[in-house]
């Protein structure tokens, strides 16, 4: 009954390569509002995103929406949990499991 993200309409998809955890780090980094003194480049696969307070609920929504729109990865609501957002690596594992299960998009 719920869609992954009703806020995002399926406009022309921008395709984004999502072949490695590094690609995912770039995507996550682009959704964080970096402040002064914070360097986006420092995001590593094991960066503790939640502990460092880098992700709020809006950033999480945007990451989920971007994965869907730009990389065709539609994570179900059941995967939008803290365990999958602790680090980029954790989210990458969830993406890989989701892909292996055949859940590419629609």
């Amino acid at each position: 009954m719920t869609t992954a993200n009703p806020a995002v309409s399926p406009v022309t998809p921008v395709s984004r390569d999502m072949n490695s955890v590094e690609d995912l780090c770039v995507l996550i980094s682009s959704k964080i509002t970096w402040g002064r003194g914070e360097t986006p480049a420092r995001l590593a696969p094991d960066t503790p995103l939640l502990e460092q307070g880098l992700l709020d609920s809006l950033a999480i929504m945007e990451i989920v929406a971007a994965l869907d729109k730009e990389a065709g990865i539609a994570l179900p609501d059941t995967e939008i949990v803290a365990a999958n957002f602790r680090t980029p690596q954790a989210l990458w594992s969830a993406v890989e499991v989701h892909r292996a299960a055949g859940g590419a998009g629609a």
Partner: peptide, 9 residues
């Protein structure tokens, strides 16, 4: 605190 942004959690 880490769970606050995740309604399912």
């Amino acid at each position: 605190d880490l769970l606050r942004a995740f309604p399912r959690d």
